[in-house]
């Protein structure tokens, strides 16, 4: 639906800002607009069945370890805790498809597609910027690629997904998106940042 008005509409103006070194801005910021963000919750008795259904339906193996993800170009599945998963996808039909696969006895599916604003931060200074707000250990040994963490940045609940060494997706409550954006851009001024068009 083209009529959607996202939280940062009119606020995240494209451009280049802050201290630019010779190599230009060291940070790129862009809003990501997935077509689906779904939380899936199993119960202990149904966990194995739910994981197996997700694996076959998504064509991705659901990680066993908490705080890890697996994904392809379209879809990412994150294991947030025992029996709790988050699915992020460019496939809008995923919600209905998943509801058909998992009935109410097996799992609770909660649509959070509009409840989150997703911001991607990338570039050589991405980790340096995040250290200004994340209390997590961002060392690649402690938080490797594909890792996921639920935490907070200055009291704003944030889910952090490390896609690559210096590429992170940050999921925040839609209502805090502008406040968070203001923090993120302010923190990036020191390194120079470029605002790209929404993905």
């Amino acid at each position: 639906m083209s009529e959607m008005v996202h939280a940062l509409a009119g606020h995240a103006q494209p451009g280049i800002f802050g201290n630019l070194g010779e190599a230009g801005p060291a940070v790129t910021l862009a809003e990501v607009r997935p077509a689906a963000v779904l939380q899936v919750g199993a119960w202990p008795q149904t966990r194995a069945a739910v994981e197996s259904t997700l694996t076959s339906f998504l064509g991705l193996s659901v990680p066993q370890a908490f705080g890890m993800s697996s994904g392809d170009e379209t879809t990412t599945v994150m294991t947030l805790g025992p029996g709790r998963y988050m699915i992020v996808s460019a496939d809008a039909g995923l919600r209905e498809g998943l509801k058909e696969q998992l009935d109410a006895e097996k799992a609770a599916i909660t649509d959070l597609g509009h409840a989150r604003t997703v911001l991607r931060i990338s570039g050589p200074a991405a980790t340096k910027v995040l250290r200004k707000g994340l209390t997590l250990d961002l060392d690649p040994g402690a938080f490797p690629e594909r890792a996921v963490a639920q935490t907070a940045v200055h009291h704003i609940g944030t889910l952090v997904h490390r896609r690559e060494a210096e590429v992170f997706d940050l999921f925040v409550f839609r209502g805090f998106a502008l406040s968070f954006w203001e923090w993120l851009t302010d923190a990036s001024l020191e390194y120079g940042y470029r605002v790209a068009d929404p993905l």
Binding site: F173, G175, F176, A177, L178, S179, W183, D186
Partner: peptide, 18 residues
Amino acid sequence: GREIGAHFRPVRLTPMHD
């Protein structure tokens, strides 16, 4: 730090805020 002025606390806005 930067938690001063308007950023002393995070601000939460509804979809119709603007």
